[in-house]
Amino acid sequence: MSTSTILSIRNLSISFKNEISEQLAVNNINLDMKRSQTTAIVGESGSGKSVTAYAMMQLIQPPGKITSGEIIFSPAQQDSFDILQLNDNSPALYDLRGGLMSMIFQEPMTALSPVHTIGNQIMEAILTHQAIPKQAAFDLAAAMLERVGIQNSRERMHQYPFEFSGGMRQRVMIAMALVCQPQILICDEPTTALDVTIQAEILALLKELKATIDISVLFITHDLAVVAQIADQVIVMNQGRILETGSVRQILNDPIHPYSQGLIAAVPGMKRQPRLDAISNDSTRHNYGVHPLIAIKGDREVALPMPLIPAEYQL
């Protein structure tokens, strides 16, 4: 392996309990994020991809519960540690959140507090992690806003979220996430709620930022077109399990798992098909979700029942 691993998840299980049943949202998954690369988790709603990301910052709240596993984080110039071992009140956890690792969300409309100014909210991120004067924090925040493409940043610092458009708010979110120079940026479907043109702008911005800052990105999406543009590594999730991992080229050009194949076939324009097929959830649940085996070839992994595993893969 050419690059080192910044974060590795081992045997992570997360369950949600309601009054009737207990659902495993994440079922015993393993994954590795490589330093300075963009790893994308692809999956439909409810596949457990966001929950996995939340677990990385210990943001899961009842009724959700992490039932087992470890998340080993190896930041640069620091010893690696298991995020899940951090106590609820430990200073290390608060350094991690927003400091070493930060997150941007799907809904830029609601992810910002409606009654505080943009400036207040970005400066809070800085002041939480750095002991610097308010004026310095203000300058830092304004500069970051410029950086993500918001003009007149000094005036706009005093404005409220409702005075910004959706795309602008997402830029604000990105500025807020990056202002403390985290080592991992988690993007939880950051473009899903935006118009297509704005999506393109935000993706371009993320790519541009990625090119200039040394940062590892975990990109969560259901959109394979986005994956094709931005990802280095791809993880396909469904029903709380990882079905397949591999490089973006491998997954998009040569998907092994039937679910991945269906997913790719469902994207118009990526492969020509007369009619789109619906991906059957029942088949995933019953056929290849129940007793899958992990098969490996090189840095590719796929989870499949025995008869479906291609011959060149090792168990």
Binding site: Y94, D95, G98, M103, F105, T110, A111, L112
Partner: peptide, 14 residues
């Protein structure tokens, strides 16, 4: 339960 609370938690606010 609102998203802005999660945002603030993710920022590391106590």
């Amino acid at each position: 339960g609102k998203p802005y609370v999660v945002t603030a938690r993710a920022k590391g606010v106590r």
